[in-house]
C-alpha cells in the first residue's frame, strides 16, 4: 500500500467520522485530536512521507497538504456548528428568567401630559408660549380685564388676597395684559399656568388648578377665525369626529363671549353621568377681546381686534383619564402617578 493509498483512505475515514451526524463537543474534540494533533493521523503520514518512494513523494506531499487543508477547513466549519451547540448548552444552564436589574419606570404627571398635548397643538398653529406671574395685582387680574370693582362679575371667582391690591391670580387671563403691555401687536400666544380659587376642597374642586390661556391679536380678526382655530383644536385633541357647540356666555374681558362644548365622547351624546345627560361637555370659555381690554393696554380697538380663550386642565385630564377625584392630582400617590 503506497502512501497515496493511505492518504485516500485517511480522507475516507475522516469523511465517515465527520459525516456521522453533527458531532457533540466531545466527539468533535476527539476527531480533531485524531487527525490534526501532533500525534494525529496527518502528522503520522507526514512522518511517513520521508521514507516514501521518491518518485511519488512530490505527488504524495501535494496530496497530503491538500488533505490537511481539506480537514482543517472541514473542522473549522464544524467547530462553528459545535460551538453553537455549546452555547445552547450553556444557555440551558443560565436561567434568563431571573429578574433583570431594576430600573424603575418614572412618569410624567397627567396634568403635564394634557398641557403638553394642548400646547403642541397650538404651537403647530404658530402660537408662542409664555408664562405670567401667579401673584399679581388687582389691575392685571381684574381691572385691566374689565372686571371692575363692585361688579357682580367679581363673584364669578372667589379670590385669595395677599393685600387689598395683590391677589393670587384667579385665571391665566392676567397673561393677556402682560403680553399686550410688553409687546406690540400682532400677538399670538398661549400661556399655561397655575391659578387659585378660594373654594372649599372637595372631590370636584380644589383651591388651585391649571389653565391654558390663548390670545390672538391682529387686524381683522373675526369670530369665525376663533371658531376655526378652536374647532381645529377640538378635532386634534378629541378626535376628528368630535362635534362642537358654541353658546353665548359672559366674561367681562371678551365681547361677544362664548362657551365651547364638545360632544360627549363617553356616551356618543346618548346621555351619561359625565355630561350630566346633556350630551355635551363644557371645555372652554372664549370670545373676542373686549375693546375695554385693548384700551387698558393702549391698543387702539379701532385698528386691532382679536380673540382670547381659556381652558381648565384638570377638567380635561379628569375626563381623558377617567379620574373622579380632583385631589388625586396633588396627593403625589406613587400608585396614581406611575400609571401615567
Amino acid at each position: 500500500m503506497t502512501i497515496l493509498h493511505s492518504i485516500d483512505e485517511l480522507k475516507n475515514q475522516f469523511d465517515t467520522d465527520v459525516l456521522n451526524g453533527k458531532p457533540d463537543k466531545d466527539a468533535f474534540e476527539e476527531i480533531k485530536r485524531k487527525y490534526t494533533s501532533r500525534k494525529g493521523k496527518i502528522a503520522e503520514l507526514f512522518a511517513q512521507l520521508g521514507s516514501a518512494d521518491p518518485d511519488i513523494r512530490p505527488e504524495a506531499g501535494k496530496a497530503l497538504n491538500e488533505l490537511k487543508e481539506y480537514i482543517t477547513i472541514k473542522l473549522d466549519g464544524l467547530s462553528a456548528v459545535v460551538s453553537d451547540n455549546t452555547e445552547v448548552t450553556a444557555a440551558d444552564q443560565l436561567d434568563l428568567t431571573l429578574s433583570g436589574d431594576p430600573f424603575p419606570v418614572g412618569s410624567i404627571h397627567p396634568l403635564t401630559k394634557v398641557i403638553e398635548e394642548i400646547t403642541t397643538i397650538f404651537t403647530k398653529l404658530g402660537f408662542s408660549l409664555a408664562y405670567g406671574p401667579e401673584i399679581d395685582t388687582d389691575f392685571y387680574n381684574f381691572e385691566a380685564l374689565n372686571i371692575l370693582k363692585h361688579h357682580p362679575a367679581r363673584d364669578m371667582q372667589d379670590t385669595f388676597y395677599v393685600t387689598d391690591d395683590v391677589v393670587l391670580r384667579t385665571h391665566t387671563s392676567n397673561n393677556q395684559i402682560h403680553m399686550m403691555e410688553n409687546h406690540d401687536p400682532p400677538i399670538k400666544v398661549i400661556a399655561p399656568g397655575r391659578v387659585y380659587r378660594n373654594e372649599d376642597v372637595s372631590v370636584r374642586s380644589y383651591c388651585l388648578f391649571h389653565q391654558i390661556e390663548g390670545l390672538y391679536v391682529d387686524k381683522n380678526v373675526s369670530m369665525a377665525d376663533l371658531k376655526g382655530v378652536l374647532n381645529y383644536f377640538a378635532r386634534e385633541f378629541f378626535g376628528k369626529n368630535v362635534k362642537t357647540r358654541f353658546r353665548p356666555s359672559y366674561f367681562p374681558f371678551t365681547e361677544p363671549s362664548a362657551e365651547m362644548d364638545v360632544s360627549c365622547y363617553f356616551c356618543s351624546q346618548n346621555g351619561c353621568n359625565i355630561c350630566k345627560y346633556t350630551g355635551w361637555l363644557e371645555i372652554l370659555g372664549c370670545g373676542m377681546v373686549d375693546p375695554e381690554v385693548f384700551k387698558s393696554v393702549g391698543y387702539d380697538p379701532d385698528i386691532w381686534s382679536g380673540y382670547a380663550f381659556g381652558m381648565g386642565i384638570e377638567r380635561m385630564a379628569m375626563q381623558r383619564y377617567g379620574i373622579e377625584d380632583i385631589r388625586m392630582f396633588y396627593e403625589g400617590d406613587i400608585r396614581f402617578l406611575r400609571q401615567f
Binding site: L125, G126, S128, L129, A130, Y131, M179, H183, D184, P185, P186, I187, K188, V189, Y216, V217, D218, S222, M223, A224, D225, K227, G228, V229, N231, R245, F246, R247, P248, P256, A258
Partner: peptide, 27 residues
C-alpha cells in the same frame, strides 16, 4: 350674534399670521 346663533357663524378654514406675532418661548 346671540340671536343669529353662534352655531350659524361659519368657521374660518384658513389661518394667516404675521412673523411679528411670534414671542420668544420661555421655560
Amino acid at each position: 350674534a346671540r340671536v343669529f346663533g353662534y352655531d350659524n357663524i361659519p368657521e374660518s378654514k384658513s389661518f394667516s399670521g404675521s412673523f411679528l406675532s411670534f414671542i420668544p418661548d420661555l421655560h
